[in-house]
């Protein structure tokens, strides 16, 4: 897993990410349109019969033939494009679903009571702000815990002196500790 580098993106997703997805959609719809045109072109360039009546009946038959032809071609078009867009969605939303999955695992790790780890995203992942906010929250809590324990350990060091000083320092430490803990609500 690569360590994430700082990025300039201020939003939840990068601007380039939306642009890339839009470009891919444009490509898919263009290819779909061209394929559909080619399919119709092949059907509609079948030559008419050489006789007058032949052309007349060919035109009338084509009108009747148009409904099943359109239904079939549209179903094929919708199916192919849906599959293409589904693959595109899978690739594109993987960059969003991945960080969400990692966040879920991180929170499960948080709940488990084991050593808590920060969230690191892969290169190109979105939702950087969410992972940064979680890591910042963890850092702030760890800093807080370090300060609380530092207050208690400072009092313990002074316990090497006489018992009265020890008790007084511990009481002082408890007052400070209580004040520090009271900011959490």
């Amino acid at each position: 897993m690569k360590a994430r580098r700082p990025r300039k993106a201020a939003g939840m997703t990068e601007r380039g990410y939306a642009m890339r997805f839009s470009a891919m959609l444009l490509l898919v719809f263009s290819l779909g349109g061209v394929s559909l045109f080619l399919a119709f072109y092949v059907i509609l360039t079948q030559p008419f019969p050489p006789t007058y009546s032949g052309v007349y009946f060919a035109l009338r038959n084509l009108s009747a033939f148009l409904v099943p032809m359109l239904v079939f071609s549209m179903l094929a078009y919708a199916l192919l494009l849906s599959v293409a867009v589904a693959i595109l969605c899978g690739i594109a939303f993987h960059k969003i679903a991945g960080p969400l999955y990692r966040m879920e695992r991180a929170l499960e790790n948080y709940e488990s009571g084991e050593s808590i780890r920060a969230v690191f995203l892969r290169e190109g992942d979105q939702l950087v702000a969410l992972a940064d906010a979680y890591n910042c929250f963890l850092t702030r809590l760890r800093e807080g815990r370090r300060d609380w324990l530092a207050v208690m350990e400072h009092a313990e060091r002074l316990c090497l002196q006489d018992a009265d000083t020890c008790r007084a320092e511990r009481i002082d430490a408890l007052v400070r500790l209580s004040a520090m803990l009271s900011r959490y609500r």
Binding site: L44, T45, Q46, P47, F48, Y52, V55, Y56, L62
Partner: peptide, 11 residues
Amino acid sequence: YHFLFPYEILG
């Protein structure tokens, strides 16, 4: 009928 293919009508 001055057309050879249906495409000329519907193209």
